[in-house]
Simulated scan of single mutants.
Amino acid sequence: MTDRALVVVRAGALTTVQDRGRPGHAHLGVPPSGMLDAPAGLLANRLVGNAPEAALLETTVNGVALRPRCTVTVAVTGAPCPVTVDGRPAAWGARVRVPAGALLGVGTVTSGVRSYVAVSGGLDVDPVLGSRSTDLLSGLGPAPLTNGTVLPLGAAVSSYAPVDLGPQPAPPAELVLRIAPGPRADWLTDNARTTLTTRTYRVSATSNRIGLRTEGPPLERAIMRELPSEGLVLGAVQVPPNGHPVIFLADHPTTGGYPVVAVVRTTDLPAAAQAAPGTPVRFVG
């Protein structure tokens, strides 16, 4: 086994190829996509000496199992999880050598939601609109992994010096999201605007890469008429008819017809990617 490729032995609940995304195509109806927890993904690439734009894997909750056809260096970051090579414990958050034919196991997270698996050379799948990212909303990019998928690898030659380890924040015990008023903030009642920034919500189990859904006190609208579809941005906080705020993440639609009452700071969104169902959520104005 000498060819540069990975074979997916166990795909996990949802494992996708991601990179830094494809921003700048909203006018075509294409979301930005890319790594939800970009700092974790960029660290994984740095650990193995990849360029920041190299494609890697984003796993969801229960990890993935991979068998490389050549000897590779890997790093697993993001949500903490057990890492094994042929059943023997290996390091999380550090460089790991995986021989050709060995089985790399990335297990179920101990906290958080999404782990990142970088492989020396990066994943060499075909780019679409300048990115190798899987976009669950539009269907662009490679399909989510299934058992038996073969992923080609790029050449493991880079001018980017690897690092041995790097600090990573723990998944949030409480998700604090700093917000600015959205274009339709006045569509909420005064009481609802107060509720948004003084009450605690919780992450819903129906959250995904498109949006983080919340459960908690519903927000009452002051304006009840229909709203024509408007453009949406990363971090937009939309209020659907049930009154529970939705925070749009990387695979968000580019337009929507419900009022956007706030926008979350981009720097707070990586923590949202690691907020497990039931995590308390506070909006801070």
Results as ranks from 00 to 15, higher is better:
S33N: 12
L137S: 00
P183T: 09
A102T: 12
V125P: 08
M224A: 15
V163L: 15
T73K: 06
R4M: 11
P217V: 14
T134D: 02
D19T: 06
P277N: 13
V128M: 14
L153C: 10
H244Q: 11
G21F: 02
A118L: 02
R132T: 11
L137V: 00
P152I: 11
I223Q: 04
G285L: 14
W92E: 02
F248K: 01
L165F: 12
L57Q: 01
A205N: 15
C81V: 09
V233K: 01
P253N: 00
M224W: 05
V163M: 07
P167A: 07
L153K: 06
A236G: 12
E226Y: 05
L57Y: 02
L136W: 04
V261Y: 05
G139Q: 04
W92C: 02
L56Y: 10
A275Q: 03
A250P: 01
R225C: 06
V85Q: 05
A26K: 13
A54C: 00
S115F: 05
P152W: 05
T15K: 10
R4V: 06
L103A: 12
T73C: 10
S229V: 15
A13W: 08
N208V: 12
V260L: 08
R221I: 06
A262R: 00
T206G: 11
D164R: 09
R95V: 15
D3S: 10
I223N: 05
P280C: 15
V128H: 11
L56C: 09
L103G: 07
S229Y: 13
H25Q: 09
V163I: 15
A262W: 02
T198D: 14
P68I: 11
R67D: 11
R97S: 06
L43Y: 08
A271R: 00
G166Y: 13
Y201L: 08
T134G: 00
T206Q: 15
T110K: 10
G139Y: 06
V48W: 03
T267L: 14
